[in-house]
């Protein structure tokens, strides 16, 4: 009965799936060179269940997220996509009453091992939020380097170097290089969000989680952030939750569709949108609900 459960799907991985009966592989698509079959899995989530008190928010989700690519998570409001994203860096633990079962491995290491400190997980898995949230009392420069300084980095030259590198990667350097001492909140909304991306990547995380990063931005700022993601995936594994299916088709190499807490389908983006395997996926992407 579990073999025909469509809720658990995974992209092909190098490692042999431990729960192969629950994992439905799909053939690697040659149309998408970004997901080559040799790509290593960065995040390996197995049978993840998340509860908020009595609410079963994510049900039995198993998927492997390939390294150095963009993975989009789509689905209607309340489908558990943000919850799933937040459990990838243990942010959901900040919500009182949240519980999680299953396992999540980052490059082979179990993030939920009792010996692992959640703050260490969040240093390896950075996050960008729905609304830009620079620290209002800090300058642009301080906002970018705050993560490094929290980790005890005091070397001025190194901080300066990371500051420039992070701002360049976030495509913000040219706009702010002469204003580094100005407050972070003096920037425009789109610039603030790119500042938050710079802040997240300054600590050189392995994975960057983005929770609807453009939902508060205008189309031009959105295009900039999307372009940025395309650049960033050379160095980082990116997981983005988005309300916009168009955005998923523009930025994501593979897309996961969540519905009512279940992972319905996970496939290369073009395949999921052109040739969905599941009826629910088809109904959602053709706009029949959600």
């Amino acid at each position: 009965m579990s073999s025909d459960n469509p809720a658990t799907v995974a992209v092909p991985t190098n490692r042999a799936p431990a729960v192969s009966s629950r994992v439905v592989n799909f053939p690697a698509s040659s149309a998408l060179p970004a997901v080559s079959p040799t790509d290593a899995v960065a995040i390996d989530a197995r049978e993840v269940n998340i509860f908020y008190g009595e609410k079963h928010a994510v049900i039995d989700a198993t998927l492997g997220i390939p390294a150095r690519s963009v993975t989009a998570i789509i689905g209607p409001s309340g489908c558990g996509k943000s919850t799933f994203l937040r459990c990838l860096n243990r942010m959901h633990e900040l919500t009182p009453g949240a519980r999680m079962t299953g396992s999540i491995r980052l490059n082979g290491e179990n993030l939920y091992d009792p010996k692992v400190d959640p703050t260490v997980v969040r240093r390896r898995v950075g996050m960008v939020f729905q609304k830009s949230n620079p620290f209002p009392t800090m300058t642009i420069g301080e906002n970018v380097t705050v993560g490094l300084r929290l980790n005890g980095v005091r070397d001025k030259a190194f901080l300066r170097e990371r500051l420039e590198d992070a701002l360049r990667k976030a495509a913000l350097w040219d706009e702010v290089k002469s204003d580094l001492a100005k407050p972070g909140i003096s920037l425009s909304g789109g610039q603030q969000q790119r500042l938050c991306i710079a802040r997240a990547i300054a600590v050189q995380p392995e994975v960057l989680l983005m929770d609807e990063p453009t939902s508060a931005l205008d189309p031009i700022a959105t295009a900039k952030v999307e372009e940025l993601m395309n650049e960033l995936k050379r160095n980082f594994t990116i997981v983005i939750v988005t309300h916009s299916m168009q955005q998923a088709t523009r930025v994501a190499d593979q897309t996961a569709f969540f519905y009512l807490g279940k992972l319905v389908e996970f496939a290369p983006t073009r395949e999921l949108f052109n040739n969905p395997r599941e009826k629910q996926t088809e109904a959602y992407i053709t706009g029949r609900f959600g």
Binding site: L94, T119, R122, M127, F129, N133, F135, V146, A200
Partner: peptide, 21 residues
Amino acid sequence: PDLQREAAYGLGATRWEVTRI
């Protein structure tokens, strides 16, 4: 705003660091 706290938690800040920054 909770978003401020999450920004700090997201950088791997401890509770004390979140409270401070």
